[in-house]
């Protein structure tokens, strides 16, 4: 019973953050701002859903499967975000924030 409540609560938290990530992706005005929402919110969203799944399967023996996915997502999310940011800088996408004058960039 307690496990069921905890699993349901974690699922709610997870779906809230998944939704926040998607809303941010859909409504924020420029690419660099949009990059924030999915990279963070969805990672925590999937994280709490996996926690829910782990808790749920605890009833018939502990399971470490979910931990692997969480670990993998937390390791890879910053890498894909960084590569996407670099691609956006390369494409010189319009951004609301000005580039700082003191950051050295290779001329291309």
């Amino acid at each position: 019973m307690i496990i069921e409540i905890a699993v349901s609560a974690l699922l709610m938290v997870g779906s809230f953050f998944m939704l926040v990530g998607a809303i941010g992706l859909a409504r924020l005005p420029d690419f660099f701002m949009r990059l924030h929402a999915p990279t963070k919110a969805t990672t925590l969203g999937v994280g709490s859903m996996l926690l829910a799944s782990m808790l749920y399967s605890l009833q018939d023996g502990p399971s470490l499967h979910e931990l692997l996915i969480v670990l993998f997502l937390f390791l890879t999310a910053p890498v894909s975000a960084h590569l996407l940011a670099q691609a956006a800088l390369k494409l010189k996408l319009r951004s609301r924030a000005p580039m700082p004058g003191d950051f050295p960039r290779l001329p291309d």
Binding site: F32, L35, H36, T39, K40, T43, F74, A77, P78, V79, A81, H82, A85, Q86, A88, L89, F103, P104, R105, L106
Partner: peptide, 18 residues
């Protein structure tokens, strides 16, 4: 850089060539 991307409203975008 990874820590910055995962935390408070910040994303690391680029590293200077040096």
């Amino acid at each position: 850089a990874s820590i910055i991307t995962m935390t408070p409203g910040t994303v690391s975008a680029d590293l200077a060539p040096d």
